[in-house]
Design a protein around this nucleic acid. Structure first.
Lengths: 205, 205
DNA sequence: CACTATTATGAGCAATTATTCAGTTCTGGC
DNA sequence: GCCAGAACTGAATAATTGCTCATAATAGTG
């Protein structure tokens, strides 16, 4: 039975050791969720892995969901930052270049910890807060992609907005699925085919 | 703690009413899983929804996982049957026709009960039996698609196998995601853009 | 050192849940 | 109508788990 975080606000760390504890808990949670999944990743297990008592965990997180929420927020933010970095660095001259940058960023992002990502995807639909966060992120990302596509005259699709959505969703989901599979996958091949698919789609004569 | 089904085999119905009970339980499980998710979809709730005592449920299913396994198996089988039907009916002359048939079949399949499907996707990675089943199904489907693509001379991609994988994964995942979203989506538009993407990808000059 | 605020502890509570089993009811063949 | 096996029942069990709170340890301050 989750409690209302407004009634049970998490404590703000004022000493260094508190901040350290918080970080230990978060790292442990990432490992435990990745290893056991959300349901079997119990708060006691997380505390144990962090080398911290269960009480400490609840001083910084009002409930279990809040932990995954923070992990997910971190992932989204680092993903957005990565995308910004790649885009600001050098504006790729071609549509293919843009698509390749997208795909590469996604593959890199998913290689980090596919199992944890899976838990995030699993859990998202059941948590309103997560849902909202992911939704906002997705919308902004779609809008950006759409405008980027608009800036290339050679892009000719019926509906740029839908195209942007499909491309982003495809990258996110397909890369995740393929990377998370147990069999070894030729990532270069995956990258090339995805890039080819998007490029031909967008710039068809 | 799931028990070994070999030790606790489910009973084979010998009377009509038993078969009816089994079916009521399965239908109720589909509803309850879709409504509450896997974790909160308790066996007691399923039994209650089915209008059957909890004991009856355990006479036909050794544990909770077995129920979802049967539901998933049913979904896969009906999906495969649907694909066969569409393909056997009339061989579409163009690549675009084939892609459209694929996309339409998937959309139809997902409109049925997106929420239940989500639970299946959620749960699959945690159940070895489910994992195997889905894996076998995916492999066969990929092989079929690959051979189909090979039969069209105008299909020119670097790696037909990877192409088949990407196309199937994209259809499955993107359609699911878009359909499961709460916002109303223009399905015709989704269909058109997906078909365009695949067709241009496959038949690029 | 002494004192207060901050942080850490962990036994245990309350609630939930999958599953069992001893007993009851029903069905269909004779 | 009788009865053996099939089907059904649901209270009870055993285990798990999120989370609390009274208490203890520690840090920073003067």
């Amino acid at each position: 039975m989750p409690r209302d975080p407004r009634i049970h606000p998490r404590k703000q760390p004022r000493q260094v050791r508190a901040e350290l504890t918080r970080r230990r808990i978060l790292r442990a949670a990432a490992q435990v969720f990745a290893e056991y999944g959300y349901a079997a990743g119990t708060t006691n297990r997380i505390a144990e892995r962090a080398g911290v008592s269960i009480g400490s965990l609840y001083q910084y997180y009002p409930n279990k969901d809040a932990i995954l929420l923070e992990l997910t927020a971190g992932h989204l933010e680092s993903g957005a930052a990565e995308a910004d970095r790649r885009q600001a660095g050098e504006p790729p001259g071609t549509v293919e270049g843009v698509m390749r940058a997208f795909v590469q960023a996604s593959i890199a992002n998913h290689l980090e910890d596919p199992q944890l990502l899976r838990v995030m995807l699993e859990r998202t639909p059941r948590s309103q807060e997560l849902l909202d966060k992911v939704h906002r992120y997705t919308e902004e990302r779609t809008a950006r992609t759409r405008e980027l596509l608009r800036s290339y005259p050679e892009v000719r699709v019926q509906d740029v907005h839908t195209a942007a959505r499909i491309i982003n969703a495809t990258i996110e989901l397909v890369v995740h699925q393929v990377v998370a599979e147990h069999e070894p996958v030729d990532l270069k091949r995956l990258e090339d085919e995805l890039v080819a698919m998007f490029t031909r789609y967008l710039t068809a004569g």
